[in-house]
Nucleic acid binder design. Sequence first.
DNA 1: CGCTTCTTTGAATTTCGTCAAAAGGCGTGG
DNA 2: CCACGCCTTTTGACGAAATTCAAAGAAGCG
Lengths: 221, 221
Amino acid sequence: MLGATELLRDLPDEALVRAHACARVERLPGHHRIFEQGDRCERAYAVAKGSVSIVQAGSDGGQAIIRFIAPGEMFGTVPLFTDHMLPADAITAEPSVVLSWSEADINALIDAYPRMSMNIIRVIGTRLVELQDRVRELATQRADQRLARALLRLSRHDGNGELAFPLRRKDLAEFSGTTLYTASRMLTAWARAGVLTSIGRRILIHDRAALHFLAEGRSLP
Amino acid sequence: MLGATELLRDLPDEALVRAHACARVERLPGHHRIFEQGDRCERAYAVAKGSVSIVQAGSDGGQAIIRFIAPGEMFGTVPLFTDHMLPADAITAEPSVVLSWSEADINALIDAYPRMSMNIIRVIGTRLVELQDRVRELATQRADQRLARALLRLSRHDGNGELAFPLRRKDLAEFSGTTLYTASRMLTAWARAGVLTSIGRRILIHDRAALHFLAEGRSLP
DNA sequence: CGCTTCTTTGAATTTCGTCAAAAGGCGTGG
DNA sequence: CCACGCCTTTTGACGAAATTCAAAGAAGCG
């Protein structure tokens, strides 16, 4: 199962065994803070089960959700290689299992298997491109377009279905750069139009095509 | 001089010689497009002299400036390691000298000097953190705060002085997520207040502290 | 000097955030 | 099992912020 994590992809079995040997495994309840913005970064993390949200707070109260982490994805890893300051909070969005490795172990693994550094480059390169898209969207698009795009991003990429994460309106708003009020308004409007339904903290997408229309600024057909 | 580029930092002289041998050097006029969004990525670039802006356009006409590249910084490099699709345009902001290396040469260099992959990780890790900050700002702050922050980012970090890049109002707007009209209004207001002066495409900061106030949402003292 | 590009400024409009308040859900503990 | 309190969602009304449109100056460049 470790072989499915993006950090350890395409590594020989021997490397997986070694990574497994030095991994710390933690079962955490929902809404548990794994690390805090400003903490010193001393471990590399990955989600095995459940989900984690990465939340950044500004010196004013403003918060934004930078990213949701799904099983198999790593997080909190980049600062190990830069300035060792964690730039955001990590909070479980539901009961989750989280793996982590000490900095020393990670460095030893990278030395032993240079392909790992290529994996890291590929992963953070992909995230960089995603964030660039979000910067452009936040800079140029309306709130409804961004919210529709957020739903598309959070839904599994194949066909219709449930969002991959349990979300409150507040979370959705902080992820798409708006307020929970406008997020609520738009969701109820779209639910009325049959695009989606919202049950508790789960959202089901019925009409992906409609969301694409909305994300491009067109109105519902 | 190559040793000053972030890509080749801390490498032995022998590596610099080799990098120099296979580098392509180009003198380009201002507003020259180096590559285009959607192109296949086949080279790694760095600015030796001048400056380059990285501009992303959406399927609607909306444009955003993702980043300005100063001498010594690399650009267009990440997609070499991911999907080989360039996610944005690169355009010289003034007459510039641009270095580039073929993918094969870069890979050969990385194989020979594994420290280079660590350099790459450090560089794109740093950019990732910067972009996270911008996402939060775009999501939570007002246009005037973002514009003030943009000016702070673009000015040299020590004391007052001239911005590092020649900028039109449109560029400033596309970099801070607003329109050229509001950017113009705010700049003239701040110029009247003595915070800065604008001469042609160059902006001089007189009162960095005031910009910090503005970026935090407070009004001018 | 004439042209293009860029900047400024005003006025109207839209979008969106803010505030307030009511209604709904959910879990805990009695 | 019910009642209570807390958290979340919904909805309306209002106002502030920022975009849009229009048009006139200003500045650079051939």
